[in-house]
Write a protein that binds this DNA or RNA. Sequence first.
DNA 1: TAACAAACCATTGACGTCCATCAAATCCCA
DNA 2: TGGGATTTGATGGACGTCAATGGTTTGTTA
Lengths: 170, 170
Amino acid sequence: MDRFVSTFTNKIDAKGRVSIPAPFRAVLERDGYATGSAGGIYCYPALEAPALDAGGERLAKKIDGLLAGLPDYSDERDELSVALYGDVQVLAIDGDGRISLPEGLRSHAGLTTQVTFVGLGDKFQMWQPERFAERRERAREKVHQTRKLFGAGNRLSSEDEDDGSEGARG
Amino acid sequence: MDRFVSTFTNKIDAKGRVSIPAPFRAVLERDGYATGSAGGIYCYPALEAPALDAGGERLAKKIDGLLAGLPDYSDERDELSVALYGDVQVLAIDGDGRISLPEGLRSHAGLTTQVTFVGLGDKFQMWQPERFAERRERAREKVHQTRKLFGAGNRLSSEDEDDGSEGARG
DNA sequence: TAACAAACCATTGACGTCCATCAAATCCCA
DNA sequence: TGGGATTTGATGGACGTCAATGGTTTGTTA
């Protein structure tokens, strides 16, 4: 499996460190990340939500792709670069699979004692647990309505039905 | 990693010196810069912003590339050369990873006590911290709007589209 | 010789690395 | 199938290293 799926909730310790869920680490390693050596995960404040987006090399390449079409040294490119590269932090993963979240990122997502990791396929997000619970409720509502529109015969929507599949520990 | 990414804020000391963030130095060294020896970073006032542009060999080559298309000894080339090269300063990096900013550059960017280094991929910028905070907000706004223009059909923008909803299962 | 700049050195605090502990899930064998 | 052993992942803490920063000395030039 090479996608981020499921949700997990881990603690932030006194030094601001938090363990990345093991399944996510496995995906990152397959994505070209070498634990312990130089490199790390790319992390930035999500645009539309009080959360952090994060991912590995694949995510970095997508960001590059957004800028690839723009001419060098145009104002437009500079402006986009500020938002895309300027907001990104490269977080190193230590030997125990942990990252430490800088203050700036933590405050954007309102993270204090716990972090909920949410798999989104190519990337994952980090949420303050209570906030994510709300968001999740809204999302379920939405899925419910969407299914009604498409009709019950749709196999894909029944795919979204399974719950209790989360691996949240602790 | 061979690109300038993230933002860092460092102090200017009484003698006008400021440390270049270690990750940026690493990029510069990989780019062909040898700390301590002859050479330095290329730095010039940004054309459209109260900030300084800076970079290493790769940046210099890109500037060369802009001129390459024009015929030798043409007036056009001469003028563009002056515009591009005329304001460039080569700043030496001392043994501790610091540069000292000449008064001309400092005043263009309004730098007094602190400098915010902003990674933009092939180059980085130096900003007065408060001014950068504004610029960053604008940039995020713009990305926000750009995404809406592209719409969900765009592969790249759909990547940035999620607000967490699609990852919410169970 | 005074003024300035550049190299050198020293301190401090943050961060990365390493180690120990604990809980949960799995495996193995009776 | 049940219980104990083993493995893996999460968490907390100690320690060493490096980056940022401030200061001092040396060299150079007018």
